[in-house]
């Protein structure tokens, strides 16, 4: 089976480490790409095809919603989820209005499993 690729974009090393550990433990067949902000993410992706993007909202430079828009332009239909501590209803509505999933930090294996079951379903 061909390996799937996920992108995690977060300016916090801790947040990226948490996602890395979850993938290394529970989703070993996935390749994980990491970026520390929006611009870095666009460089890291560089035309590669993704299966999943997990994006923080509050980052230096472009925010997670702006990055999600750019990722959608590059790859329409990509499964993008905002992973954020900013859990205000308006933020959730903005994300969901764009077809972007919304996950409250801290991330945990169960939250990623739920995304995976939708992706695989």
């Amino acid at each position: 089976m061909e390996s799937k690729t996920a992108l995690i974009v977060d300016d916090s090393s801790l947040a990226r480490m948490m996602v890395r550990k979850i993938f290394a433990t529970s989703f070993k067949d996935w390749t994980l790409k990491e970026a520390k902000d929006g611009q870095d993410a666009l460089n890291v992706v560089d035309g590669a095809s993704l299966d999943l993007a997990l994006v923080d909202f509050n980052m230096p430079g472009m925010n997670g919603i702006e990055l999600a828009e750019k990722l959608m332009e590059k790859q329409p239909g990509l499964s993008i989820h905002l992973v954020t501590a900013n859990i205000q209803e308006r933020m959730r509505m903005r994300a969901e209005g764009m077809g972007v999933g919304f996950i409250k930090k801290p991330i945990n294996p169960q939250k990623i499993s739920e995304i995976m079951s939708v992706l695989n379903g």
Partner: peptide
């Protein structure tokens, strides 16, 4: 360390996220 500072900032960020939600409501 840089990593400890990063973790502390991320916890702060999560705390403020909850606080902002309360204030927003």
């Amino acid at each position: 360390t840089e990593l400890e500072e990063d973790a502390l900032k991320e916890f702060f960020n999560m705390g403020l996220g909850m606080a902002a939600d309360s204030l927003s409501q």
